[in-house]
Amino acid sequence: MQGSDRFAAFRSPVGRMVPLVAMGLIWQAVSATKLIDPSFLPSPLRIGHAMVDLLTGREICDNLFVTLARAAIGLALGSAAGVWLGLMMARSPKFRAYAAPIVGGTYSLPKSALIPLFILWFGIGTATTVCAVFLSCLLPMVVNTFQGVASTPRVLVWGAQALGARPREMLWQVFLPHALPDILTGLRVALGFSFVLAISSEMIASTNGIGKLIFMYGENGAYDYMFAAIACVVVVAFVIDRLLLLLTQKCLRWHESATERGPA
């Protein structure tokens, strides 16, 4: 096909950088020609300088670490609780009757709207951020786990029972493995939410963390440093997301979605 061949170059690792480099050049040009006031939109070169300055100091690393720790704790707790709740909802009609309306009602609520409430309860600091991350991760995990467990074909369940599986074993050997692709899909969504909520809650309810740092640079008009800090977040978030994708591929080698191993 000719149409797709024309873009083949963009699919190589180097080729994929082309649009990013082009955007950087346009940005630089817009800045250099003062089309947009450079104090509002600093040029990539100035951001680069700021970045070098930031990376040689400890500030960015320390704050990034604080944020990642908060996000990781919230994500871990939210995912664990979400998997458990989703599993319970799928396996117990009684539990589902109670939980489903709550999940349905809160699913579309932007969790950041609750940050003021958490400030009231937990004050400024880690607890508030972790709580916001926890809540944002919980629902995608609940919904995806529920979907994965509830869609387990009955013949898989019966097949395991006929081979002597006990009820407790069914959970780990049938329901959770069957739900794993959905759970990992939920985890990727939750990972994205965890960054969003960690940073946005730090902006208004923290004394440290990368969110607070970005917010402070913005408040003080140090836009080049602000952009440099944002760039750091982008890179870290991208790398973590790719790592999760790699892990997913490794865990789901058995799944229909996995790439073929070639003819037998």
């Binding site: 074909p153 013949v155 019966w158 097949g159 395991a160 006929a162 081979l163 493995p177 058995w254 799944h255």
Partner: peptide, 29 residues
């Protein structure tokens, strides 16, 4: 009393565990 290993079942839909290899499927029971 419910399902038991004295009655082996083969389903039309195979009902293999997709996350287990051929050997581990056979070893499951």
């Amino acid at each position: 009393q419910g399902p038991g290993t004295d009655r082996g079942v083969v389903f039309q839909e195979y009902a293999l565990f997709p996350w287990l290899t051929v050997r581990n499927n056979i070893l499951y029971g």
